[in-house]
Each structure stands twice: as structure tokens, then as C-alpha cells.
Design a protein around this nucleic acid. Structure first.
Length: 259
DNA sequence: ATGGTAGCGCTGCTA
């Protein structure tokens, strides 16, 4: 089984590349972030032609998350459970059962500036995600929480930690919030299989030729529960998807499990 | 070279 997560940075702008990538890579499930469209504009038909059922949760210009699955799509939930959901989630989370898997697509707020209201909201979102797992999940079930976390878990997950002095994505509270998800019962799939590597990065700023200089970050994560961790056979970034004409600024992170 | 790009949508915000 193959599962991928990709911040596509506008599905309207990227649909051709996403279709191409799906046809070439044939993941069983692809979760997407930053679709930047509303539900009515989501191109469900294009995915259906490739064999994927989809759920989309978006409301226009910003954010927007989706799941495409060719192994079933049930028990769909857009947003967090409960009444407080709309105020905090901003079309940044959707989940569904895909065959035996419970899959989340999450787009954690950027945070912008440390200690800003946006940074506070980022930490609150991550805390709420942990609560969602606690109240609705079981770490002994096969669960994959995937997406753009906007957090680099360790110093080696950025090209130069010195360049991040005072910046978001690398602060201890952000990292602790991601660790809290792991402590609930999830493993960072890519880091589990590549414990001694730098990165590999999954995002590079469009500006200043950063991709070509290798100035990236590993902020797109696939966090998987123990039953999946035990079946994990591959985890990698498809860096080629960041190349060529009009790429997303993120590359897909792919994880593979034995059947 | 001391800024750089990209998307959305029409002005400046977001990343």
C-alpha cells in the first residue's frame, strides 16, 4: 500500500501536475493541502477518471484540504469533531476511512511570527489535533495523520538552523506540539526509516533560487500509528515533483506499507 | 545582486 501527502499550492493551478503525478505513481491514497478552492470548484471528476474517490474541505482563496483514495472512502469528517470546530480549523483538516486505514489530511497554520496571534493559533491547532486523536482515535488502529505541519521537527530538518534564529517552524513549543502527537502513539514515518539523514526536505521557498541551492525544510510529515509503523517498508520525498514548469513549492512525501 | 516567486484576484495578503 502506498500513501502520499502533498501540499499542492492551488489545485486549480496544479491539477495537470497532480493528474500526471497520480498516473505515474499510483498511490492508493493521496492527501492534499492548500487546494485553495471551494468545494463546488473541486475537480472531483478529474480524480474519478483516474480511479480515485475524493473528499474536499475548502472555502475559497486559502487553505483547503482533500483526500483522494482508490481503496474506499468512508466515515468522512470535515473539520474537528465537536462544536468548537469551525472557529479553529479554517478548512485545515479532513479525515476519512480508506479501506483499513484512518487517514487525516492536515494543513497546520503557518504561524507567521513567533508569539503573534497566528503563532498562538498554530499551537492551539496542534493541541486540538492531539485532543482529536485522544477522544476519537486508538493508537492500536492503523492511523495516518499526514500533511503540511509547518514545523521542522529537528534542526537537521532545515538547511541552516542559524538562518531560523527567532523564526517560526523551529521553536521548541512547536516541536513539542508535534512530539505530543508522537507521544500519543504516532511515528514520523520518514524519520523512522531514515534516522541518520539530513532532511530530506519537502519544501523550498520559490524565492531566491532556494530549491536549486538546496535551501529547504522538512515540514510535510506522515505520522503513522504502530500497526502501520510495523509494516513500513519505504518513505521518501519525490523531489522530482518540485522540478520543471510551475511546480508546487512542496514535494510529495510518500510512504509504503507491506500488505 | 542586498532583492528575488507564486497564487489569488484586483489590492495587498499569504506563504
Amino acid at each position: 500500500m502506498k500513501l502520499a501527502t502533498w501540499n499542492v499550492n492551488s489545485l486549480r493551478a496544479r491539477l495537470g501536475r497532480v493528474e500526471e503525478w497520480l498516473a505515474a505513481n499510483e498511490p492508493d491514497v493521496l492527501v492534499m493541502q492548500e487546494t485553495k478552492c471551494d468545494d463546488a470548484a473541486f475537480p472531483a471528476g478529474a480524480f474519478k477518471l483516474l480511479g480515485y474517490d475524493t473528499v474536499h474541505h475548502g472555502n475559497g482563496r486559502w487553505n483547503g484540504v482533500a483526500i483522494a483514495s482508490r481503496i474506499g472512502l468512508e466515515e468522512i469528517r470535515a473539520g474537528f469533531s465537536g462544536e468548537d470546530a469551525p472557529s479553529i480549523e479554517e478548512c485545515r483538516i479532513v479525515q476519512a476511512r480508506c479501506g483499513e486505514l484512518r487517514v487525516f489530511s492536515v494543513y497546520v497554520p503557518n504561524g507567521r511570527v513567533v508569539d503573534s496571534e497566528f503563532y498562538v493559533a498554530k499551537l492551539a491547532f496542534l493541541k486540538r489535533l492531539r485532543e482529536e486523536l485522544e477522544t476519537t482515535g486508538d493508537p492500536d488502529e492503523p492511523i495516518a495523520v499526514c500533511g503540511d505541519f509547518n514545523v521542522a521537527p529537528e534542526d537537521r530538518d532545515v538547511w541552516d538552523i542559524a538562518a531560523f534564529e527567532g523564526a517560526t517552524h523551529v521553536t521548541e513549543p512547536e516541536r513539542a506540539a508535534v512530539r505530543a502527537l508522537e507521544e500519543w502513539g504516532l511515528s514520523d514515518a520518514l524519520r523512522s526509516l531514515h534516522p541518520d539523514e539530513v532532511g530530506p526536505f519537502s519544501w523550498w521557498d520559490y524565492r531566491a533560487g532556494n530549491f536549486h541551492k538546496g535551501y529547504g525544510m522538512r515540514i510535510d510529515l506522515a505520522l503513522v500509528s504502530r500497526p502501520l509503523r510495523e509494516r513500513l517498508v519505504a518513505a521518501y520525498v519525490d523531489r522530482d515533483a518540485r522540478k520543471g514548469k510551475l511546480p508546487s513549492d512542496h514535494a510529495p512525501v510518500v510512504v509504503e506499507f507491506s500488505d
